[in-house]
Amino acid sequence: MRLGYLWAALLFAPLLHAGDKVSAQQFVDLQQGDSVHPGFRRAHAKGICVQGEFRNNGALAQYSSAQIFATSVTPFVGRFSLAGNNPTAPDLKAPVRSLALSFATSASEQWRIAMNTPPVMAVSNPQDFYQQLVAIKSGPKAIQTFFAEHPESADFLAWKDSYQPSGSFAAETYHSINAFYLVDDNEQRQPVRWHMQPTVSVTDDGLSGPNALHQELKARLAKQPVVFDWLFTLASAQDDERNPAIQWPAERPRINAGKIVITQWQAQQDGACHSINFDPLVLPSGISPTVDAILRARSAAYAESYRRRAVEQLRGQAKELSND
């Protein structure tokens, strides 16, 4: 692990959101549960590192001064992962799949992105999100009661009811969930959400085994790159960019910023992604966060999870696992 990030996590993560009703420590305690897997993330523990490049088409240069939208090609380190705290869990059982990317946009700036298959959150504040996790761990009756008491979950439940998992990490759509601002040279801000849209369609026919998605991705990359279109949805004045539980109308303008092209994979424990904290608040100039409480809570929880696995790495407690 890079020492600078490690010590930053050790020193500052315990202080994040200390005054909130639900702390980062409580979130991560709940996510990791009674079974701790030393050296692994407390959420989305099972994953695979990837590398590739963003091929920019220039379409967002008028909206953002970020260097990534002015440069033709920007390399990245990324990670596909699965929901849950178990790094050996069966791939096809996970309810959520994720894609995270880290761009070094200049010598002094980075952009880290953490996306999930749901387009929205079920709730709009950290306290309710914590109670949602409690309900999930308590069983089907508890989560049904929770959703009945939270009508703002309607958009999430509509997605959940219609979602059909694909047979490949490469065939999923990954969403920012939270909104951000594109900031231009005149400091004008445009609220956006984005998603990575696959260029292939893959069913899960014939997939089997605990590491089915990992094996499928490795076989796919041995033949050709995995490609996504990077699509940005522009909010109107009627949309509340602070509320991650509300889906924006389909008629909002959408801009294709270019292609995400994945060319390589690495086992996560030996790969470049393992030491990265994919904190969604690590942003370059030209991109800024909205006042979204869940976005802040995500950042704090990621830092606390990173702190714990960094300590375990220092103590030599991390275990070696394989997803072959």
Rank of each mutant, 00 (worst) to 15 (best):
Q51Y: 03
W159V: 10
Q67W: 09
D204W: 07
S305C: 03
E187K: 11
F76D: 00
A94Q: 01
G258H: 03
K319R: 13
V134T: 10
F232C: 13
S275I: 11
S168K: 10
P14N: 00
F156W: 10
D184C: 04
L30D: 01
R309V: 03
F278R: 02
G58T: 07
E53G: 12
K160A: 14
Q26V: 14
R309I: 01
P249I: 04
S35K: 15
I177T: 15
R97D: 05
D155I: 00
G84F: 02
A104H: 14
N211V: 08
Q144P: 03
V50I: 15
A158F: 07
Q269V: 08
N256V: 04
P151H: 03
Q62G: 06
Y174N: 10
A83H: 05
P253W: 03
R242M: 07
M196G: 06
S285H: 11
Y163S: 04
F54P: 04
S288R: 02
P87Y: 03
A235K: 10
V96E: 09
P244G: 01
D185Q: 14
Y130E: 00
D205H: 12
G316R: 08
W265E: 11
Q31A: 15
P191A: 02
Q313P: 01
F278H: 06
L295R: 08
A300M: 03
F180Y: 13
V311N: 08
R79G: 04
R307D: 07
E149Q: 14
A18D: 09
A100Y: 05
D20N: 11
A293G: 06
P225G: 00
E149S: 14
V183F: 03
I260E: 00
T199V: 08
I177R: 14
P280S: 05
R189S: 11
P284L: 05
D292A: 04
L217D: 01
M196W: 12
G209L: 04
T117Y: 04
V73L: 11
R189D: 11
K259P: 06
R79Q: 15
R307M: 12
D128M: 10
T173D: 06
K259H: 10
L60Y: 02
S168A: 08
I294C: 09
P280A: 09
G58W: 06
L295P: 11
Q313R: 12
Q190W: 06
A300P: 11
L217Q: 04
Q317H: 12
D128V: 06
Q132L: 15
C49W: 08
D270T: 15
N57V: 04
A154Q: 12
I143M: 08
A158P: 13
Q238P: 09
A104S: 14
R2L: 13
Q67A: 15
A59T: 11
